[in-house]
Structure formats: C-alpha cells, structure tokens
C-alpha cells in the first residue's frame, strides 16, 4: 500500500501531503513560493485526465473483446441504439462543467503569479542574442540573476533585438522579452541555491546557449555580494576587471580570445596589429581604435565580417572601456597565459 502511494506521488507533480519538495517524476524542484500552486493545478488536471483516459481505454478494450465479430459473417443485432439524447447530453454537460472548473483553478493560480507585491525588489533584465544582462538598482550589471532569499523580486524586461523568453523551470515562471516594450514578472525564491534560466523563444544560432542562473543568496548575503561586485573595477587589477566585463556584457558571444573567428574576429593578439577594413583602408589596433570599435562599431568594419556589432554607447562607462582595453591588450602581451576566457 505504501509502495502504491509512493508511486502515485512520484507520478504527480507535487506530493499530495507535502508542501516543499525536490524533483519528482514530472516536475523540477519547487524553487519559488509560486511553484507549489502551479503544481497543485498540474496534479488536479493530471488526475482528471488519468480518470478520463482510463475510462476511454477500459471501455474501448472491453468493447473490443465483448463485441468482436466471430468470423466475417456478421450477426445482425436488432435494437442497436443509434442515439440516446439524455446520455449524449450527459457527456456534453459533465465534461463542460469539469473544464470550467479547470479553467477557474488555472486562472486563480495564474492571478496569484500575475501581481507582484508592493515591496518587490526590482531588477532590470535585458535580453540580447544570446545573453541575459541583469541590472541592479545601483547600476551594476551582471550576467546572472542574484537575488536575496525570501524577498519578492520584480523583473522588468526588454530585448535589444528579437523576442526572447525568460524561463526558470524551478520557479514555474516564463515571460516573453519583447523589443520595444517592457514585460514584467515576479517571484520569490524559497531557499538559497542556484536555478537554471533558459531562453524559450527561438532566437537563432545561439538560442540553446542563451543560459544563465538565478543565484539565491542567504539572508544578508545578497547585499554584501552586490557591494563587492559593484566595486570590482576598483577592487581588481584592470585586465581582470576587463575580462569580467568582456564576459558579462556579451563580447564573448561574438569574439573569442583563443584565435578562432566567430561572428566577430578573435581579440587574441590583435593589439598592435594592422587590419584591412571593408572599405579597403587598413587600421592599426590601438587604444583609440578599440574605443571607437566599442562606441561606434560601424565606423570601421573589419574586412570579411558583417556589421552586426551593437554599439555600447551609453552602456559602458569610460572607466569600463578603459579596463576592457587593458584586457584586450593583455591578450597580446603574454601570449597563452590569459586565455581562460
């Protein structure tokens, strides 16, 4: 009997008696306060579906055996019913009531998740091919979403290019991120830990690599992390700070540091080199050229590449550009050593 209950619980999303749980057969762990209400709706529909499916299959199997013809000669059975208004009305009305019930339950679960509480902590989310950027109230930008545990977080999201969709399975949370408008969603993480973020609106070559994590900090840990992180330009040697920015701001999406060409040219060893441009001229890579490449990428387009690099005008501060330049320089100075990007 216990085994049976165990199996049944394993089959449904939530354990019927528990409110907090890990991964089950159907569902990932419940990482947010909203997850369990979604799972309850899932369970309800699951059992209703199981009931009707079992009904259909059992009736089908019984009829198949009970009424199979013996040989090809057909016994004509008089009085085969051709219709039965009451019965048919019953199997119209009863399912109708049931689905209206499901509609209602689904709606309630949805409304719970639709309206963020008033005291929510706000993080700006910017999606771009193929990268998530999370901007905190103090202006610091990170490639992962760091949040404090037990506090509602509101996300205000927009896209730089095509439509993306922000999906955290453990939170049962999904919302499209659309260029030209802001979409909002919210959650409250239940426990410290990490959760996977996926992009679920198809966005091209790197769609399936457009991943990030939600990092849920212990109480108090988040504020400390944010303070340290925000000061990394001051706290770290310039080249290292530059490397972090190179990762966080999505340069790595298009530029390798190991010599392989990607969507953009590799940045390995370019400092001091002379490059042919599309218009036939050539340019020697120095600090000013890199600065111009970042702020006005289309001014000089490297031969053999599409002019697809977005401008970082207004998105990178001077201080940040300076350390990125330091990082790119470091890729030339010492050859192999700093290739861990």
């Amino acid at each position: 009997m216990n085994l049976l209950i165990g199996i049944l619980q394993g089959l449904t999303a939530g354990n019927l008696l528990q409110t907090d749980r890990g991964r089950t057969f159907w569902m990932p762990p419940q990482g947010s306060t909203g997850a369990s209400s979604v799972d309850n709706v899932f369970d309800l529909i699951f059992w209703i579906s199981m009931f009707f499916f079992a009904l259909i299959v059992i009736v089908m199997v019984v009829f198949v055996f009970r009424y199979r013809a013996r040989g090809r000669e057909l016994d004509s059975k008089p009085g085969v019913p051709k219709h039965n208004f009451r019965l048919e009305l019953a199997w119209t009305i009863i399912p109708l009531l049931i689905v209206i019930g499901i509609f209602y339950v689904g709606l309630r679960g949805f409304l719970d998740m639709a309206v963020p509480p008033a005291n929510a902590y706000e993080v700006q989310v910017t999606a771009q091919r193929w990268k998530w950027l999370f901007t905190y109230p103090n202006g610091y930008v990170d490639e992962n979403l760091h949040v404090p545990v037990g506090r509602p977080i509101q996300l205000v999201m927009t896209s730089e290019d095509v439509i993306h969709s922000f999906f955290v399975p453990d939170f049962r949370l999904k919302m499209d991120v659309v260029p030209g408008r802001y979409s909002k969603t919210w959650f409250e993480a239940k426990n410290p830990g990490q959760h996977q973020i996926f992009c679920t609106e198809y966005c091209g070559t790197g769609h399936s690599d457009m991943l990030a994590s939600v990092v849920v900090h212990e109480p108090g840990g988040f504020e400390r992390w944010l303070e340290d992180a925000a000061d990394f330009i001051e706290n770290l040697p310039p080249a290292e700070a530059g490397q972090m920015l190179y990762q966080q701001r999505g340069c790595a999406q298009c530029h390798s540091v190991d010599g392989r060409a990607g969507i953009g040219p590799t940045l390995k060893g370019i400092f001091g080199q002379t490059h042919p441009m599309q218009d036939g001229s050539s340019v020697t890579v120095d600090e000013d050229y890199i600065r111009e490449s970042i702020l006005d990428p289309q001014a000089k387009v490297v031969a053999g590449y599409q002019p697809v690099m977005p401008t970082f005008q207004g998105k990178l501060k001077d201080k940040e550009i300076t350390v990125i330049i330091a990082y790119i320089k470091s890729l030339t100075d010492s050859g192999g050593e700093q290739e861990e990007g």
Partner: peptide, 19 residues
C-alpha cells in the same frame, strides 16, 4: 486532447509553454 487541458489552464501553461 487531455494534455491540452494542461495548456489551456493558465497557471500550468506558463510553465509548459515552449517546452
């Protein structure tokens, strides 16, 4: 058809959409 019920219901569709 029955799995469509999960997708018609708002709360579960948000999780299951585009998976």
């Amino acid at each position: 058809g029955l799995t469509g019920l999960f997708l018609g219901a708002l709360a579960t569709d948000v999780h299951l959409h585009d998976t």
